[in-house]
């Protein structure tokens, strides 16, 4: 009699995670297509609208995300070495950096809202159509990205708890790897969002 063994396939679940990441990439891909087309049709308006965004804040956030991406990768090395403390610290740094990113984002958005720039606002509609499209895309894309950060932080927090409970350990860490993959995805998307909105002006 064969007992119903718990089916475990780490490689399989990693492939599954990658496939999920593909769908996420294409989800943003749809928005990138829209961005590309409207930028092509309204080059001047996009240029001018891009100047309204603060490059310093954007750069800071880029660096924050890059570091957080590196630390989450390091936490995986740490778990492979069997160093629980290091794993936890790297993960904690990642989460703190993500929160820092969100705080930055909050001030950036509320600044825009304070100036009466939000989707459907009168000030926005008074600007040209190109500007309306630019800010529409800006809010949609960075908003969707921020949503992914929130989901990512939640997942990383769950990982933190699971490492503390030794559910994730030297021999079983595919969940941490997958969470890491998700976090890098968030990073990659930002790597493109940053120049497209803040730099090309």
């Amino acid at each position: 009699m064969s007992t119903v063994a718990v089916h475990r396939d780490d490689v399989g679940s990693k492939i599954g995670m990658w496939l999920f990441i593909f769908t996420e990439l294409l989800l943003f891909g749809g928005l990138f297509i829209v961005y590309a087309v409207y930028r092509y049709k309204n080059p001047v308006a996009f240029h001018l609208a891009g100047e309204e965004l603060d490059v310093t804040v954007g750069t800071l956030n880029t660096v924050i995300l890059l570091i957080s991406s590196a630390t989450v990768a390091m936490s995986i090395s740490a778990v492979q070495y069997g160093n629980k403390r290091a794993t936890l610290s790297y993960l904690l740094i990642t989460i703190l950096l993500a929160l820092f990113f969100m705080i930055n984002k909050y001030f950036e958005w509320s600044g825009k809202f304070g100036h009466g720039m939000y989707p459907g606002s009168e000030k926005l509609t008074e600007l040209g159509q190109g500007e309306v499209l630019f800010f529409g895309l800006y809010f949609a894309m960075t908003g969707l990205h921020a949503l992914h950060i929130i989901i990512g932080v939640t997942i990383l927090l769950i990982m933190l708890v699971r490492i503390m409970n030794n559910k994730i350990n030297k021999t079983y860490f595919v969940q941490l790897e997958n969470s890491g993959l998700y976090w890098h995805l968030v990073d990659i998307i930002w790597i493109f969002l940053f120049p497209l909105f803040y730099l090309i002006s």
């Binding site: 991406s69 590196a70 989450v72 990768a73 993959l181 890098h184 990073d187 990659i188 790597i191």
Partner: peptide, 10 residues
Amino acid sequence: KSSLVLWYFM
């Protein structure tokens, strides 16, 4: 930059 992330981090 994103290739670096894909290649090493991921």
